[in-house]
Amino acid sequence: MADMVTKEKRYGFMPGCSLPSYNPEAVAKTIEFLNATFPHFSAVQKCCGKPTKAVGQYDLFKERFAGLQADMDDMGIEDMIVACQSCFLTLKEASSTPVTSLWALWPKIGFPDDLKGKAADSDIVFTIHDSCSTRYEEELQDGVRWIMDQLGYQVHESKHAKERTRCCGFGGMVVPVNPEIAQKVMVKRVETLEKENVVVYCAACRSSLLKGGAKAWHILDLIWGPVVNEGDDSPMDVLASPIKSWVNRYKAKRGIVHAMR
């Protein structure tokens, strides 16, 4: 976690890859909200290069990351807010710019009044699936729980939560290499979640859990979307379709431009 929140600084936000490919509207709304919160604010849409690094192309990664760093510097960003846990870790390790997780930030800047308690009457109980890459980032995990509480949703903590969370099956670029294994991991993860309805804060995790047989929502779906009730179906697995994903990614880019106007 970077320094204390201060309105003097120029904050930036990057949605990452899987989130804009999944839900461009949520990206736009988040940016609108942050832009209204911080007097000095910039937005960037670009990959952090984690996949390049994960397959082992370290030199190429350095080159690509330098591009992102240049964008951040160019936009005068002094503290980068991220919604993706891989971005969080990648920036933490490779960037000269301090990085803040959106989930850890939210309790510090306060929840929008009109959204507080919006799901107080919902009968659904969510299990939280924590991202395994940030299993040791307690502040980030607590922030997610704080948001669920602000929204008014009921939450069940499974045995495999937080530090003891299990992989969704997506990590390590395994899916395109060994899809059978990845599918087994996805099913196994769902089996250990104890409840059918799951809330995640990574769009790739969401896609994996759907493949594993659970119903899963991204926490931004719950924040910006309609109230969910027991028995509701979760949004479809958009990331399963490359075409839809890239169309969305493009939509997100347009949405960002629009939201920053």
């Binding site: 910039s42 960037v44 431009v257």
Partner: peptide
């Protein structure tokens, strides 16, 4: 095509 960067207005 898929990337962007925008500095917010004052």
């Amino acid at each position: 095509f898929f990337t962007t960067k925008i500095r917010g207005r004052k």
